[in-house]
Design a protein around this nucleic acid. Sequence first.
DNA 1: ATCACTTAGAGTCACGCTGACTTTAACAGT
DNA 2: ACTGTTAAAGTCAGCGTGACTCTAAGTGAT
Lengths: 260, 260
Amino acid sequence: MSTTYPSPFGANVSERAQLPPTLAISTVIFALRPSRASGKPTLWLPLVRRVKEPFKGQWALPGGPLTSTESLEDAARRNLLETTGLAPEYLEQLYAFGGLDRSSRPERGAQRVVSIVYWALVRPTEAVLLVDSETDNVAWHRADTAGQGEGGLAFDHREIVDYALWRLRNKIEYAQIAYHFLGERFTLAQLREVYEAILGRTLDPANFRRQLTSTPQIEATDEFLEGGRHRPPRLYRYVGPPTPYPASDHPHPSTSRSTP
Amino acid sequence: MSTTYPSPFGANVSERAQLPPTLAISTVIFALRPSRASGKPTLWLPLVRRVKEPFKGQWALPGGPLTSTESLEDAARRNLLETTGLAPEYLEQLYAFGGLDRSSRPERGAQRVVSIVYWALVRPTEAVLLVDSETDNVAWHRADTAGQGEGGLAFDHREIVDYALWRLRNKIEYAQIAYHFLGERFTLAQLREVYEAILGRTLDPANFRRQLTSTPQIEATDEFLEGGRHRPPRLYRYVGPPTPYPASDHPHPSTSRSTP
DNA sequence: ATCACTTAGAGTCACGCTGACTTTAACAGT
DNA sequence: ACTGTTAAAGTCAGCGTGACTCTAAGTGAT
């Protein structure tokens, strides 16, 4: 920032390796969809098939270049809409990945790419409008196993997805983001299923209720979910801010300690 | 990532605005130094004076370009060493800033810059080896007031510092990072002063002790700090991992809630 | 209509952490 | 020996949590 690059204009091929890396934006989009096996909601994400080398034919995160006339978040939104047809309400920067071995096939002359990765949460209602799905070049995959048995995901995208999963699991424990997986009204059991799917463990329904009813951002409506086989549960609504913070933020590592 | 940029070779001036943004690395380096007024430790950070436009003469974060042969973190370390002479032990990615108005003076033809910002913590012993300090082009500034009365910091660096401060204050509450401000051995009162300086409030010494003595990463030595005017305090040592996690992570927003 | 079954939702209790506070121990300086 | 100051340990009430029990309110089968 305090210095400038050598001008790229007029550079010849031998100088190519010295050029600054190019910038790309990618996004990890999480949605909850019922598992084929158990019917319980599980985490899925849309991937696009590579149509050229490197990693041609393999699955990759949606992404693309950054133009000079849009902010990083705008670029993420535009790319998302173009490649998957999704317009997530919740979108946040995840991390900038810029290792030297990201292509994992160190080819000669291949230009180095730094990816600024965003992550997003979408509701099941938003999550159906996939572009290009008839050509099978965009498809939903299970977040935890995507790429298995297919030679893995393109680039370092498997690591990126794992990091996004870690971030989601941490952030859901202290931030109000679970509602972005659900519609406007939901039962406490549905919300609990979201937490259970993401955290991978069962939660006590009574304790879960006690915590949520003491949360001011959760408002009880006077409606109930009819049509169930048993006592109709009350519907609740989230009345807090859409995306709590402008910039990103994260949570506890596994070694969770309090103040010191 | 799934598409490629138009080649920059042979681009003419009219195409310049369509070129992808360039990448830069900057770093916010925090150190604790005694305040001039109270003598209590306060947060300081090194800044470098801009020697060319834009923002010539104003103070900016240390930074520079990213070469094609180094990772993002390596680039941050190299730039830090070149511009300030510092080699921090603790270094972590903060955020990628890429807004369109970052130069705040939208000049014609000025190339857009995306900055990937790292943040670092250094001990007072490391914090003295400043390069170029005789020319006054590198100097320590108070983290909370840097740029005041001087027309502000260059670019959006004041916002970046504020975001780094927010991150530091959050992370110190759940992660073991305070030790990176101190030497190998320290008293509990010294450690408490670190927390008080960063959090901006006093902590109860007895409760602080109780929490820390139950932390396994803190080990009591059999040495005491001699030379004080009163009862010599025991020296402690941090025996945990140097940087707990490979990638970044963050903490609670101000609306701190637990599980839901 | 009655009963069995299931889920919603409220309540109870012990435990651990925390903040506020008190008490005792150990040193330096006069 | 006394005083002032800090280190370090101890006490106590309050709060949130996990584990658990109990009651209410529906559906479907007999």
